[in-house]
């Protein structure tokens, strides 16, 4: 059986030293091993941005797509071969700005893809512009007098969009992060995992210390019930979105694939695609 080391490759990430994304990389590797996958059974699809490079830093099939489009690529891949574990990943700009349309609809669609957002609340690769996750008043190269837009709350958004799995974690908490990714991978349906992953170079406000002072684990709430959507929404609001752990999970709702008529367990890519003459003749006869 594969261990997390089998999910490592020899490529040195081009992330800045101290970047939160390193922990996300390690947590994905651990979660894959913990769930029991072999490297070739896993595919990591990513978008563009610092975090988008992650698909090249894990020993698995990796597809580094275009900005904001990791989710449709990942969903297409999952439908093509549902035997694969498909992880989609990218930054907050990738998922909540350019790719927001896909994020909302991937949530609604509920295809079994695990989506990990590395949320640093800034655009790093383009060297420091505001993101939908930036706080109001946040000064960046594109908001020199401070952002005047409302900060997006990904957890509220996901709950409102009908998510069946919503989690959040912080990149220094490797144990919790690994656990929520593992739970997301085991979840039958779409899982959104937002990870606070500080940018040590361009975000001098939302630092490791800043997060450390604010994150609140669901473990700290007495009787927290992640299957209770009302409670989930309430705690998200109470903690100003700083809640971590599995925030909400609906285990009852079947995934998209499970609801597709005629969709089989065996990966579509492995099925015979040749029609028989008889099948063809029947199709043609419908036009007579």
């Amino acid at each position: 059986m594969a261990t997390f080391k089998d999910f490592r490759n020899n490529i040195k990430p081009n992330w800045c030293p101290g970047c939160g994304d390193f922990s996300v990389q390690a947590a994905i590797q651990r979660a894959c091993a913990n769930v029991g996958y072999e490297p070739e059974q896993v595919a990591v699809v990513s978008g563009i941005g610092c975090s988008g490079r992650i698909s090249g830093y894990i020993n698995a099939y990796g597809f580094h797509s275009i900005h904001g489009r990791s989710l449709p690529v990942a969903q297409g891949l999952k439908l093509a071969n549902r035997e694969l574990a498909v992880i989609a990943s990218g930054g907050d700009g990738d998922g909540f700005a350019i790719g927001m349309g896909h994020t909302v609809h991937a949530i609604r669609r509920n295809i079994d893809v695990t989506y990990i957002v590395m949320d640093n609340q800034i655009y790093g690769l383009t060297k420091g512009q505001t993101s939908p996750r930036s706080a109001s008043g946040f000064k960046t190269k594109s908001t020199p007098t401070g952002s005047i837009e409302t900060t997006l709350s990904p957890l509220e958004m996901a709950l409102a969009a009908g998510a069946t799995f919503v989690a959040q974690s912080f990149s220094t908490d490797l144990k919790q992060l690994t656990a929520v990714i593992e739970a997301g991978m085991n979840h039958k349906g779409f899982s959104l995992i937002n990870v606070f992953s500080p940018c040590v170079t361009f975000n001098k406000v939302n630092t490791y210390e800043w997060f450390k002072e604010r994150v609140v684990s669901t473990d700290s709430f007495d009787g927290y019930d992640a299957s209770n959507k009302m409670m989930a929404m309430q705690k998200v609001l109470e903690t100003d979105g700083m809640i971590t752990g599995i925030v909400y999970q609906n285990k009852e709702k079947p995934s998209y694939e499970q609801q597709l008529p005629g969709f089989q367990e065996i990966g579509l890519a492995k099925q015979n695609i040749t029609l028989t003459k008889d099948q063809f003749d029947k199709l043609v006869a419908e036009f007579n």
């Binding site: 699809v45 297409g76 890519a269």
Partner: peptide, 11 residues
């Protein structure tokens, strides 16, 4: 992009 992902997947 979904079509590209699915073709990459072999379908």
């Amino acid at each position: 992009t979904m079509a590209i992902g699915a073709n990459y997947g072999g379908v």
